[in-house]
Design a binder for these strands. Structure first.
Length: 871
RNA sequence: GCGGGCGUGAUGGAAUGGUAGACAUACCGGACUUAAAAUCCGGAGGGGGUAUCCCCGUGCGGGUUCGAGUCCCGCCGCCCGUACCA
């Protein structure tokens, strides 16, 4: 056997079947061992897996297999995020049903994932598009309605008039629908919302407890929630204004600058603006202009601060007898704060730009601590901390104190019978609109009755199943077009009523699938005791693109499930890891077309790399390294890699080289290196087996120096690799394994000198090596394990124990520095006292020579680490 | 603008404040081979010297320290996120 090459094509399917038959990775809910839940973000069934999936699932699989070896009861499931727009688009293009397309894709991708040899419990597989899944989502929606977590309200949406559908902000490109190209309109629709903003503070505060999350993700969520503390402030209208309104309410975080106020600005969408526009054509035209500009994010950046004077004035709240003009301004947003601001030009850049344009006063009221009362503002607002001046009762205070003093001042006054100022905390976080006017989603289980109103579908009538006989001939919501589906009788009064035809945002589906995995066949959404035992997910792994929406929604939904009794915890994911992308070089032909890597022939002469087209031979330009994407054709198909090199090679390469949180560059050379390493392991195992045949009598713990040195290396490697996997430092674990392999190969070459004494250590080392490899290259490891004559599966073998005595050396080699530069080294017994090391070092010939007669000023000795002689 | 991260050989990257460049890829030399591949042995940050060795070196400039890739201050560059948020 030693002469044969390892053949992954033959061995990988074999072991996959063995694991399957033995149900190796099926986990039981009543297993008494400590539970460990590792989860990778489940895929959207687009049709084929890509290299990003390979990387993601390889990482999760290492963790799963490692924790299994550590004796944990590991839950490592897989499912499909199966609802969504692409299925409907495919249905339109291919004249098929979204379900047919989706289920075909699932079958294809499942086969691909299986070919990777992942340690997944496939008995728990779920697909969010199946009624067995979404019926529970509907039940929870009803529970959430009962608990007051759901609301229905008017909301502005991006409406594509050609596709007759609502678009997400991401689907609006330069003000046009991403599919139809039609100019997007703003429409008011009644939509369903989860009241996530009620939980803004709770979601914000709990971030502090998520210590096993990347700081970056926590920061992004903090910013998204966007807490700001300020003051709601009422400005009283001057009598005689052409409006019925008696006051305007603004929100400000800078009440300390109130003495510097020089105007009020309303949002173009403010109710008062709307009222005034009815009789003011100039204003109406301005509002229309703002709306036209509204969506294109790019232009916002350069957009000039513009406004229209309304003719109204309000009383200055602190300067007796003074008034402030009321403008409508294009930079004031209706959906933040109150939709109205007071402008203080000296201390806000936007207000300053606006004031300069309309010639409004600029009165500084905060000056730098080292400036005098003559401090003035030119074209740059002063926004730093400083001292309040020009401000009556606030003079001399710092900004923080002035904010408090102003708040206290206004709290004691009233306008319109209400306190003039009220401290308020604002969040950027909006309620979560979950209505989608689409067919391929979870139906919202609600019935609209003209008599009884909007009422939930009784739970006994769940699930509300999507009709199969739908047509996508007409644009818009196929559910709404269905001839019969929406016509039902009211469950309360029996009168004819109408089903809700909105379906839920697919983010709802993915906000609880991790909980469903714990009891995928239960006839309730969860079995709370079971869910509580498995959850939170110990290690969640996925792309950073989900840092905000998916992860925030899941955190919210888990709280909603807690409030409705489906789980007993608030945070779904204890540990989070966000992996980097898979990149590849790009290639371009002379005609400027992208060329896929499979058609490129690379040549290296010296340090020069060149590329030619594999067929035509024409020169190909090697371009930058980019994320794999169809548009740049720089994709590598996992199927081809598995067919050519085997799954283990693909997995190994994905884990080596780059730190997992960073992007990894897929290279042909790198894969070949991984493949060669696989063969190297196989040769080493073959050689070891031959030695054992020749010399069956061997000792594992011998006095032979070489054997003892090898055992130290082996045990240290076991120790380090375990630590690296636990810290998700896969690239370092890989490097450790390379080092161990190098040591074992070297050692195998020395066995002939003393076979009896050394073969045992080599055997032990190779067995351990195979075990260290098992989480990463599981098929190869099983093959080697079997060849070595070990009983059972390496997948079931416990993680090898480490002999602590072998982790410590009794001698240490300490570098010797002179003035911080390395000049030599000394090997002494571990724990040698500093005084003794010092005298030894100072008597060494090379040190004496370097010192050249100079007396050391100081000798720094860190025991067992380093010596530094200072002269 | 704001927030976060990064900057080390040809390349991906190692390095609890303690021998910079582990490990890998590519490269160069040698062995084996009719030859190639595979494999094995060796080399390799830059500069100088026959050599023992010496000087320089982790984006740039300062600082702290016996000692800095690592900590602090100020720049430069790149990447990611986010934004008329009052």
């Amino acid at each position: 056997m030693s002469g044969e090459r390892y053949n992954p094509r033959e061995m990988e399917p074999k072991w996959q079947k063995v694991w399957d038959d033995a149900k190796s990775f099926v986990s039981a809910n009543d297993d008494p061992r400590e539970p460990y839940y590792v989860l990778e973000m489940f895929p959207y069934p687009s049709g084929r897996i890509h290299m990003g999936h390979v990387r993601n699932y390889s990482m999760g699989d290492v963790v799963a297999r490692y924790q299994r070896a550590r004796g944990k009861n590991v839950l490592h499931p897989m499912g499909w995020d199966a609802f969504g727009l692409p299925a409907e688009n495919a249905a339109i293009e291919r004249k098929t049903h979204p379900g047919t397309w989706t289920r075909q894709n699932i079958a294809a991708m499942k086969a691909q994932l299986k070919s990777m040899g992942l340690a997944i419990d496939w008995t728990r597989e779920i697909a969010t598009c199946e009624p067995e899944y979404y019926r529970h989502q509907q039940a929870m929606f009803i529970d959430m309605m009962a608990a007051g977590l759901v609301t229905r309200k008017q909301s502005k949406v991006n409406w594509d008039p050609v596709d007759m559908t609502v678009l997400a902000n991401e689907q609006v490109i330069d003000g046009r629908g991403w599919r139809s190209g039609a100019v997007v309109e703003q429409r008011e629709l009644t939509q369903w919302f989860f009241k996530i903003s009620d939980m803004a503070e709770e979601l914000l505060e709990a971030l502090d407890g998520l210590t096993d999350w990347p700081e970056k993700v926590r920061t992004m969520q903090r910013n998204w929630i966007g807490k700001s503390e300020g003051l709601r402030l009422l400005f009283e209208m001057v009598p005689g204004n052409a409006t019925a309104a008696t006051s305007v309410e603004v929100f400000t975080t800078r009440p300390d600058t109130i003495f510097g106020a020089s105007f009020i600005a309303l949002s173009p969408d403010h109710p008062l603006t709307t009222e005034l526009a009815a009789s003011n054509p100039e204003l109406a035209e301005f509002i229309a202009e703002c709306h036209r500009q509204g969506t294109a994010t790019e232009t916002l950046e350069k957009a000039e601060k513009k406004g229209v004077f309304t003719g109204l004035h309000v009383k200055h709240p602190v300067v007796e007898g003074a008034t402030l003009p009321v403008y409508v301004a294009n930079f004031v947003l209706m959906d933040y704060g109150t939709g109205a601001i007071f402008g203080c030009p000296a201390h806000d850049q936007r207000d300053l730009d606006f004031a300069r344009k309309y010639d409004l006063p600029v009165l500084p009221v905060v000056r730098p601590a080292d400036a005098d009362a003559g401090f003035a503002v030119a074209n740059e607002a002063f926004t730093d901390d400083g001292v309040i001046f020009n401000s009556g009762f606030l003079d001399g205070l710092g900004i923080a104190e002035a904010k408090k003093a102003a708040a206290a001042h206004f709290a004691d006054r009233t306008v319109d019978g209400k306190p003039q100022g009220k401290v308020e905390v604002n969040y950027r976080l909006r309620d979560w609109g979950v209505s989608r006017q689409r067919y391929w989603g979870c139906p919202i289980p609600v019935i609209h009755c003209e008599v009884c109103g909007t009422i939930p579908v009784p739970k006994k009538d769940l699930p509300v199943v999507l009709p199969e006989d739908v047509s996508f001939d007409k644009p818009g919501n196929a559910l709404d077009h269905h001839p019969t589906w929406k016509h039902v009788n009211c469950p309360q009064c029996g009168a004819s009523a109408r089903r809700e035809t909105d379906t839920m945002d697919t983010f709802v589906d993915s906000s609880w699938y991790f909980a469903r995995f714990t009891a995928p066949d239960a006839d309730t959404p969860t079995i709370p005791e079971v869910a509580n035992r498995w959850l939170p997910v110990d290690q969640y792994i996925g792309g950073v693109e989900h840092a905000i929406l998916h992860l925030l929604y899941s955190r919210y939904f888990t709280r909603a499930m807690k409030a409705t009794g489906h789980v007993g915890l608030s945070e779904p994911f204890k540990g989070l890891f966000t992996q980097g992308m898979v990149t590849h070089e790009t290639y371009k032909s002379p005609s400027g077309d992208w060329v896929p890597p499979t058609e490129v022939l690379l040549e290296t002469t010296g340090e020069l790399r060149r590329a030619r087209h594999i067929h035509s031979g024409e020169p190909i330009a090697i371009g930058s390294v980019e994320k794999m994407s169809k548009s740049k054709k720089n994709v590598v198909d996992p199927d081809e890699i598995v067919a050519t090199y085997g799954a283990d090679t693909a997995r190994w390469f994905m884990l080596s080289d780059s730190p997992p949180e960073r992007d990894v560059q897929w290279t042909e050379a790198g894969v070949e290196g991984a493949s060669r390493f696989q063969q190297r392991i196989w040769r080493l195992v073959g050689e070891t087996i031959e030695f054992a045949k020749q010399s069956p009598e061997t000792v594992r713990t011998s006095d032979d120096d070489e054997a003892r040195a090898l055992r130290k290396i082996v045990h240290r490697a076991v120790h380090n690799v375990g630590g690296d996997i636990e810290g998700l430092r896969f690239n370092r674990a890989v490097a450790q394994i390379y080092e161990l392999t190098n040591a074992l190969v070297r050692s195998a070459g020395l066995v002939a000198e003393a076979p009896t004494a050394r073969i045992g250590a080599l055997q032990e080392g190779v067995e351990r090596l195979v075990q260290l490899l098992a989480p990463m290259m599981p098929h190869l490891a099983e093959t080697c394990w079997e060849a070595l004559g070990k009983p059972g599966l390496v997948a079931d073998a416990p993680w090898p124990p480490v002999d602590p005595a072998l982790l410590v050396d009794n001698t240490v080699t300490m570098p010797i520095q002179v003035n911080g530069k390395r000049r030599g080294e000394i090997t002494v017994a571990k724990g040698t006292p500093a005084t003794e090391v010092e005298s030894q070092v100072l008597s060494m010939d090379e040190i004496v020579r370097i010192l050249n007669g100079q007396a050391p000023k100081k000798v720094v000795i860190v025991p067992d680490r380093i010596v530094n002689v200072v002269v």
